[in-house]
């Protein structure tokens, strides 16, 4: 195993060095190459078991991890909240220790509580990969976003990245902020003041409430979904007003530079944060993000799974 990587867990991007982030991206380059071959499977994790442990609903991320593990020849078990013993009152710690007792080498955890992956990583010998914890981090999403930008623009340094939407409740935003600022990008957050508090400026980013002032200088616009299912109604007056003030409508998209990339972690709400014409337009790299997610997750599983013995 390379000396460039010595972590058994991937819990977040805040704790990674720029070198470690770049090393994951370079490893992902190799796996992306594998995806273009006729036989897309490699034996890297043969004999290892990965458990997809999703305590919060997800299809995109769970499927991506599952496919990534299959391509690395690992055995895969899926556990979701309805099939887990958590609904019978078992604690997270006990459930995870049982999975470890079944020789699960890698635990991919999606959980609604911030810090749940840290909690397990401190207590288990298995690798713990954070697949999203509350509003804290979603490191593989952050990595695949950075990977996609780097693939299209050749670099991250000095690019102006604009992240729009519900930042306060977004783990995707936090992982993006940590990775992008480490790699030298200039990051601007845009959204309603209730969802983009000024406190974020202490993380080394700019906060703006005027999207039209920011879009003309953007190299990337990353639109986050308005998570109406987890918000108390006091945060903003309504979806219609949100679209009026912050939606990337086709009118507003005219402010973008021709080479500006449009990104979205999905699932997209057409007509809310983004118009269909923009989501499906030439500047959109939304589906590239999904494809790259597979390569990035193969890299993460390969690197962490190789450390855990």
């Amino acid at each position: 195993m390379s000396t460039n990587w010595n972590r058994k867990d991937l819990l977040g991007l805040r704790e990674l060095s720029p070198e470690e982030i770049n090393f994951i991206l370079e490893t992902a380059d190799a796996f992306k190459q594998v995806g273009t071959r006729e036989i897309k499977k490699v034996p890297a994790l043969r004999g290892k078991t990965m458990v997809n442990f999703f305590v919060e609903p997800s299809t995109r991320t769970r499927t991506s991890f599952e496919l990534a593990a299959h391509r690395l020849s690992a055995d895969v078990i899926n556990i979701s909240v309805t099939t887990s013993s958590l609904t019978k009152g078992e604690t997270l710690k006990d459930t995870a220790r049982n999975l470890e007792a079944l020789h699960a080498d890698i635990l991919v955890l999606r959980h609604s509580s911030a810090g749940a992956p840290q909690f397990l990583a401190q207590r288990l010998k298995s690798s713990v990969i954070n697949a999203g914890d509350g509003a804290h981090e979603h490191p593989t999403q952050g990595l695949l976003d950075v990977y996609t930008i780097r693939e299209r623009r050749g670099k991250i340094d000095k690019l102006h990245i604009v992240i729009v939407g519900d930042i306060l409740f977004s783990r995707v935003a936090r992982s993006n902020i940590f990775a992008l600022t480490k790699l030298g990008a200039r990051v601007t957050l845009v959204g309603p003041s209730t969802l983009v508090p000024r406190e974020f400026e202490k993380l080394g980013v700019t906060v703006s409430y005027k999207i039209d002032d920011v879009l003309p200088t953007a190299d990337v616009v990353n639109l986050l979904r308005i998570q109406h299912e987890r918000q108390r109604k006091e945060y903003f007056p309504g979806i219609g007003e949100y679209t009026t003030l912050f939606g990337l409508t086709k009118e507003r998209a005219k402010l973008l530079k021709p080479d500006c990339l449009v990104m979205h972690p999905g699932p997209i709400n057409r007509g809310v944060e983004i118009d269909s014409e923009v989501a499906d337009g030439l500047q959109s790299v939304i589906l590239d993000q999904v494809t790259n997610g597979l390569a990035v997750r193969m890299a993460v599983l390969y690197l962490c799974g190789g450390i855990a013995t």
């Binding site: 804290h136 981090e137 202490k202």
Partner: peptide, 18 residues
């Protein structure tokens, strides 16, 4: 306070805790 569990400030912002 709502469902707050830690002081609202820099660390709650960084860690995504209510």
């Amino acid at each position: 306070v709502g469902n707050g569990v830690v002081n609202e400030g820099y660390w709650s912002t960084l860690l995504g805790l209510p």
